[in-house]
Amino acid sequence: MKSIILSSASNYLLPLLLLFSVFVLLRGHYLPGGGFIGGLIASIAFILHAFANGLKKTRYLLRIHPGFLIPVGLTVAILSAVAPMIFADLPLLTGLWYPDEIPVIGKIGSALFFDTGVYLVVVGVSLTIIFTISETV
């Protein structure tokens, strides 16, 4: 499945799609989007790159095994979930918010970190599944 057009297109598409996925993640609290969708878009970006350039190159680009993202994401999500218990003596998963608004992203709070955890887990899971299957089949 190597075509020059696809492979060079994907080289530009990958950063664009990744940027888009982060954008979708960050605005999720206000407009359609969020961790799940962002994560899925990011993984599709990588899979597209893998189809165009071969799995090896994508792996090289990624540096780490995608499975590594799963525990990282889970840790981020769980930390953000227990943060209110530790810092504010509030129940699990209560939202904590930074009072000032930040341009583009909006307000920053523990929910955003939780969503980031979801994002990382989704990327890790879908890439692990697809990469493992395409390697062994």
């Binding site: 999720g28 609290h29 206000y30 969020g34 939202g95």
Partner: peptide
């Protein structure tokens, strides 16, 4: 503090 209710349900 979220406006996308679906996402608020999911993460909060």
């Amino acid at each position: 503090k979220g406006k996308n209710i679906v996402n608020v349900i999911l993460v909060d």
